[in-house]
Design a protein around this nucleic acid. Structure first.
Lengths: 349, 349
DNA sequence: ACCGTTCGTGGGAGCGTTTGCGCAGCTAGC
DNA sequence: GCTAGCTGCGCAAACGCTCCCACGAACGGT
């Protein structure tokens, strides 16, 4: 592939200063520098001061590679994320990075590729190669294959995936399905006889869960849930699915806001008004949801809460504890229905 | 802070196998294993085979920390990104991660916090602490302070920031400002006398550049650009700014789609129709843009192109070359105006 | 036959840090 | 006055790998 013979003269970039250099300048042993850097006890204030001064002067920065080499820990968490700018996954990633950095770990990401079936696995493999203390699978897509994990590296998953033990799946709490149910109930309470559903791709755990909530809401009231349509989260898919909606449909619950927007558009094209003729509920509460021509009734997510929960579970695993605390965990993410203008009672015919 | 006395028994997690273990099993020297792993020459097919077999059997994975320790390189690029799920930055991050991974480097992210003025600096410091070969500043926000960098670690920035040498700023190409100009010209060509502008926060380079394009379009035609309004990218800010628009305004160029949506909403509330009374152009081409009640005329970005350009520049710096190739670089990101229904000639009064 | 060069392999020295252990000096208890 | 414990500090051995060097075998050109 590449010509290995010339050693590709990288150049004169000198080695950065190490603890030994700091020690020499401060007039102490390298070990003492190590103690100061790691905030250990048994260092005199005077020595500490000298070391800190020398370190500052030299621009010393501890070499994480050396530390990792000996401790066997990397201080790094890998996240397998969807390679997409979708509001949900992107927000979750941001929230998780923040929480993780606050805990002193850095985050390395591996995006999956939409089309590729093995991309979760290859993301995991890549992260393991890079060296991580733990792995978080952001939105596992169930491709029907068992994930190959490393028993030595804890894994936490948002949503269940084959090969991930169930206790390592971050519970969406009661909330995800429950809120899908609440969204549906909101529509039923308004007087709609049944609620149609434009679901997300069912390989996605999040999509399945929302659909489940929708289904339960019907079953609770002894209603037969109408057939659902499956989209791919995109507005285009919502638009397409909406065109298939029967004339009797007066209420639609969409698995995300983008599809809801596509759906509303299709309804408008068909001459049906929202919410006059048809009510629509979305999911995510994307920033523009409140500013659409018809402000969207939708479900606000709690990404910070979910991220904190996942991180917490991972930290427990790293400490050798059980991934999740007892049922007293009250820090469960809180999603909630935000009612705006896209829902109303069905038309009185 | 934490109790240092109990050594927090982490447990019996055995060390993962190393090259020495593989070597022993394969009956060769550790050095030969190294050669096989790094695909070096001068290894007999037979030895290679034995090593690979042993490695597979042991589940051997090279220790990146040890490698980094000796080579001084980490195989890791740090990205300072906005801590936001905004479509632009999120898409750019995804595109950059993909390109970087394909080049064999991993990506570690440090999100900035919206409010904190030093968060770019602290993100950079954090990345340097973690150990990276290079840093990319995704969307630098000009807080007026000079960034403190490490001369040994190359930095590339999307957009100029104080302290980053200009040749390390990824050129948006002619395109960013030019496309802002094209968007404005599109409106002027439709017959609008002037174009109002709802800008992004001017501390953002991207916002400034778009505004510049808008301004130039006016100056080119000897028009006085009307005063612009400054939003914060959010639909809410677009909504607020639109309320300030004078009655004579018949065309608005918004610095992103979210603000455009807020703007359209405000116009609707004021009883002004889009595009009948007022034309609106956005920027980004978010997925829902085409599916809004009034499909949005907007500017499609080229995140892959920008990401590739940045990575390329960074790789050159890592190789000791100049960050950017000559002017023959034809791989410049291509943004383009997408005309939909939110723009039309001004109302004939 | 001799000397160079290419090939295949191994020995051994670090890289910069943590960790284990040792050693002084001091305080305090009996 | 001896032991015991705490404090403050340093030496030396890893950690798993890459890199420099050496060494023998095979091979061709003189």
């Amino acid at each position: 592939m590449n010509d290995p013979s010339p050693p590709t003269e990288a150049g004169s970039r000198r080695r950065p200063p190490g603890m030994t250099d700091v020690a020499r300048l401060a007039g102490v042993s390298q070990k003492t520098v190590s103690r100061v850097v790691n905030n250990e006890r048994y260092v005199s204030a005077e020595a500490r001061e000298k070391v800190l001064r020398a370190a500052r002067e030299l621009g010393f920065r501890p070499n994480t590679a050396a530390r990792a080499l000996i401790t066997g820990r990397f201080g790094r968490i890998g996240v397998v994320s969807l390679g997409t700018a979708l509001y949900g996954p992107a927000s979750l990633l941001v929230a998780f990075e923040r929480a993780t950095r606050a805990a002193g770990f850095s985050v390395i990401v591996a995006n999956t590729a939409a089309g590729e079936p093995d991309s979760i696995q290859s993301g995991i493999d890549w992260l393991l190669e890079q060296g991580v203390d733990g792995i978080v699978i952001s939105e596992p897509i169930d491709e029907g294959q068992r994930l190959r994990l490393d028993p030595a590296v804890p894994v936490i998953s948002f949503g269940s995936a084959l090969g991930v033990p169930p206790e390592r799946v971050v519970p969406s709490g009661a909330s995800a399905a429950a809120v899908g149910r609440a969204a549906t109930e909101h529509l039923l309470d308004l007087g709609h006889r049944r609620v149609w559903h434009i679901a997300g791709p069912q390989r996605w755990w999040a999509a399945r869960e929302r659909r489940e909530g929708w289904r339960e809401a019907h079953l609770d009231r002894d209603l037969e849930p109408p057939p659902h349509f499956e989209g791919d989260w995109s507005p285009a898919s919502g638009h397409k699915a909406a065109a298939l909606l029967p004339a009797e449909a007066t209420a639609v619950f969409c698995a995300n806001d983008d599809m809801a927007i596509g759906c509303i558009r299709a309804l408008a094209e068909a001459g049906r008004r929202v919410p006059g003729d048809v009510s629509v509920v979305g999911f995510d509460d994307i920033p523009v949801a409140a500013y659409l021509t018809v402000p969207l009734t939708t479900v606000r997510q709690d990404f910070e809460g979910s991220a904190a929960l996942a991180l917490d579970a991972l930290m427990r695993l790293l400490g050798g504890e059980a991934p999740l605390p007892g049922p007293e965990d009250d820090a469960e993410p809180r999603r909630r229905l935000v009612v705006r203008s896209s829902t109303a009672p069905p038309p009185t015919r």
